[in-house]
Write a protein that binds this DNA or RNA. Structure first.
Lengths: 104, 104
DNA sequence: CCTTGACACCTAGTTACCCGAGGTATAGCC
DNA sequence: GGCTATACCTCGGGTAACTAGGTGTCAAGG
């Protein structure tokens, strides 16, 4: 998976996995890897800033929690985030069919 | 079509349209627009540098021609370009199904 | 006990590339 | 002459993913 390809699509992916269940950052990385069949192995330096961006935009909200001595920031999706996820899925479909039309 | 989304996918699209027939830069823009049903209206500042990049990488080659007083740089795909186009299509399929798996 | 690896967080700087804005020039039409 | 379409080009800016580093906890093995 080339780095450039992902640009502009990551936010939707994160919103999607967090919409299923609230997750802390590290778990988001693992969830992305699991759901993608191992294809999406994103470094922390990619995911953490994205989570901060999404929270700053009001699409996610977070809370600190401590599980077995380890501090975790647990993210949940907001109402605005749900809406944006819908828009994101729509944009993906449009983008995908556009590329397919030209590439085929 | 958001700007970020396209990142890393443009080269394959250009290779694809040029592989059907040799085209000059301006015609590449129109071909992309036509084949995408009008969704891919790329500015010149995006396409021309991409063409130069692809030629520098040996995936396209170009020749000057003059048609009715207008100079045109006509691009054709090279053997390496054909190979890269195949790889590009494969990468797209992998990328697309990965995104779909996570987003769905 | 102490090192190693998994867990869990973070940020600064680099890099790539799409785009906006600007420039040049010809042809054809009103 | 002015406008539109055609046709080429480049520079600078912005965005976002990654690299490479840092901090700290916990459990397991030597």
């Amino acid at each position: 998976m080339k780095a450039e390809e992902l640009k502009g699509h990551l936010d939707g992916l994160i919103l999607s996995v967090v919409s299923h269940e609230s997750l802390h950052g590290y778990a988001v990385i693992e969830s992305l890897k699991a759901r993608s069949g191992g294809n999406l192995a994103l470094p922390e330096g990619t995911v953490y800033p994205a989570l901060h961006r999404l929270e700053a935009d009001g699409l996610l909200k977070s809370e600190w929690s401590t599980a077995s001595g380890r501090r975790r920031r647990v993210y949940s999706i907001t109402r605005r985030g749900e809406k944006e996820l819908g828009a994101s899925r729509e944009r993906w479909r449009a983008f995908s069919s556009t590329i397919e039309a030209v590439l085929a």
